[in-house]
Design a protein around this nucleic acid. Structure first.
Length: 558
RNA sequence: GUCCCCGUAGCUCAAUGGACAGAGCUCAUGCCUUCUAAGCAUGAAAUCCAGGUUCGAUUCCUGGCGGGGACACCA
């Protein structure tokens, strides 16, 4: 955690600089220097602060640099025009950091003193009306990796999958299945036009018991949902994505939470009647009779129906009840991970959260963009109506969990990603996950060799002599390892695991370069060998921890 | 028509408002009698257009152009 203590020391030194502290929002940000600069940590603080301080950036840089030189971790601080301060860290500090990693890898990067957040993270939440498709894999990857990272940073994170098992879907699904079942038994029937047309219903129909003869459409629907929900659970387990709870919409009806939510909103004056329906005032210019207006910054473009004119609630009311329930359980922040087709849902739900009296800023909505599927250069058309789509399970079976998760984790949620089935199936070096895993396997191999040659007694850890690590490839690795906790914090700030994936690739590149250049096990130099084994252990541990946070395995051999 | 996302190397993607824009794949040329060549080294190759804010813009703002998606008393 060398960079954390360095940051603290740097900021302490700035106390002697009037008018800077509160003005520069960049203060505290440490950066990697560009390639042509020989330094470990780069600061652009003087550039950012020069104006408010009323001092030319270069002068300010010199002042800061001289103040920073007395910091214990800092070997040297030099100024580069137009106003950067570049720090070189002491080898002893980097080595101490390495020792800390190998001593307890699982604690490295954990947030010691920071404020703890209490977060309910909801993701995937696909309707149990069909198999999970590939896009759900993206939401699952983002959500699960984020949960793991936030937990490691010390936050309380509870993960949930919301199951839409209420509303009119059950019966529609039931009528669709019933039609398939009748067809199967030679009786003419037609799947409803707006029903579910996928082949999976044929498979379901084949397995129905004889008693289905007397089933109502709703019974068909409940049966189908039960089977499909089990398949979702199986897929998520196979993808390495556990949930703390599968929250059923039906629970909200059973506990009367839906009614209570409506009463709550009515009591707050956020609801009005129009055209025989009940509406929620989600706009600032609230409709007739609504006393309250949604909080600023959370308004929708139109009001939304909560209870239809036929007396049945829309999907929206139980959704609000669900979010109310989350807050009611004591979580102070909600994160929802949603597909791109739900972007219109964001202002609506934020307005609802505000209508319930919560700060909409505590409800984070992450929208991930669609996946475009290809077979080679040919786009794969996916249509819900015809039921033609690629399932998550299909891709998992062909590509494997590790490659699939790493591939999804590498992208920001905002990117529209192209997924080439042909390429993903190749399982060759074209997939970057192997590049990272290979590091882990290589270190494991080195350790096997070290034991075999007697350099390392099986039971005893390597004797640490890391001050011998003076080669530039070694130093680069020490620095890279020091950045791991910073990367995790960046993932928290961005609510995205993709920075971690990028970091692991960079770490892997540095290790492979080191490996080619320097032999770890040298019979003529036991002390250096021990030191390098220690470095390898640090790389192995951080790689294993990082891959673990992404839900990717770290193999002993490949 | 309104709203959301994207536009960076031949391809797939990175880059908290900072320095000479990074990877991987592809292509070219080298490197295995020594800890795994799923690797390394060297080279070729990019910010859609036009304005604006800024000491500084791939990043922020406005307007184009191009691509994808959403706009129900469906969920």
């Amino acid at each position: 955690m060398i960079l954390q203590s360095l940051r603290k020391s740097l900021l302490d030194k700035l106390k002697g600089f009037p008018r800077i502290k509160e003005t520069a929002r960049s203060l505290g940000i440490l950066a990697l220097p560009p390639k042509h600069i020989l330094a470990d940590v780069s600061l652009h603080w003087p550039l950012a602060c020069a104006k408010v301080a009323g001092v030319p950036p270069l002068d300010l840089a010199h002042e800061m640099a001289s103040a920073f030189r007395s910091i214990v971790e800092v070997e040297n601080a030099h100024v580069t025009p137009p106003g950067f301060v570049n720090l070189k860290l002491r080898d002893s500090a980097l080595c101490a950091n390495l020792m800390a990693i190998t001593l307890s890898p699982s604690k490295y990067g954990a947030n010691g003193g920071g404020a703890k957040r209490s977060i309910l993270l909801e993701f995937v939440s696909a309707n149990p009306t069909g198999p999970l498709h590939l896009a759900s894999g993206r939401g699952a990857t983002l959500g699960d990796s984020l949960a793991r990272i936030l937990r490691r940073l010390g936050h309380r994170v509870h993960s949930e999958y919301y199951v839409n098992d209420g509303g009119g879907r059950v019966e529609l699904l039931g009528r669709s299945l019933q039609a398939r079942w009748l067809e199967l038994h030679g009786r003419p029937s037609q799947v409803p036009e707006n029903g579910y047309h996928g082949d999976y219903l044929n498979d379901l129909a084949k397995d129905l018991p004889a008693a289905a003869e007397s089933w109502s459409p709703e019974e068909f629907g409940k049966h189908a949902m039960g089977v499909l929900l089990e398949s979702h659970k199986k897929d998520m387990a196979g993808f390495g994505v556990p949930f703390d709870r599968w929250f059923h919409e039906s629970e909200l009806y059973e506990s009367k939470a839906v009614e209570k939510t409506l009463e709550d909103l009515k009591g707050r004056g956020m609801v009005y009647d129009k055209d025989a329906a009940v509406w929620l005032a989600t706009t600032c210019a609230a409709g007739a009779g609504a006393a309250g207006a949604a909080a600023a910054g959370s308004e929708d473009d139109k009001d939304r129906v909560l209870v239809k004119s036929d007396g049945k609630p829309t999907y929206f009311l139980p959704d609000i009840a669900y979010h109310r329930d989350k807050y009611g359980r004591g979580f102070t922040e909600l994160i929802d991970i949603l597909g791109a087709d739900h972007h219109g849902y964001v202002p609506r739900m934020k307005a609802a959260v505000a209508a319930l009296g919560h700060d909409p800023a505590t409800c984070h909505m992450i929208i991930h963009q669609l996946i475009h599927l290809f077979r080679g250069a040919t786009p794969v058309k996916m249509s819900k109506r015809t039921g033609e789509f690629v399932t998550l399970r299909e891709v998992l079976e062909e590509v494997g969990r590790d490659a699939c998760r790493f591939f999804f984790a590498m992208r920001t949620a905002d990117s529209h990603l192209n997924f080439d089935l042909e390429l993903a199936k190749k399982k060759s070096s074209e997939n970057p996950v192997y590049y990272c895993q290979y590091v882990h396997a290589r270190v494991a191999s080195i350790y096997r060799e070290a034991v075999k040659t007697g350099l390392l007694a099986q039971a005893s850890p390597p004797h640490p002599t890391p001050e011998l690590l003076q080669e530039k490839e070694e130093r680069a690795l020490l620095i890279k390892l020091a950045w791991f906790p910073e990367v995790l914090k960046a993932c928290e700030r961005e609510l995205s695991p993709h920075l971690l994936a990028a970091y692991l690739l960079e770490l892997a590149g540095l290790f492979h370069a080191f490996y080619e250049q320097h032999r770890v096990i040298d019979g003529d130099n036991a002390r250096l060998s021990q030191a390098r084994l220690c470095l390898c252990a640090g790389v192995r541990d951080v790689m294993a921890e990082g891959l673990g946070l992404l839900g990717v395995s770290a193999p002993q051999e490949m």
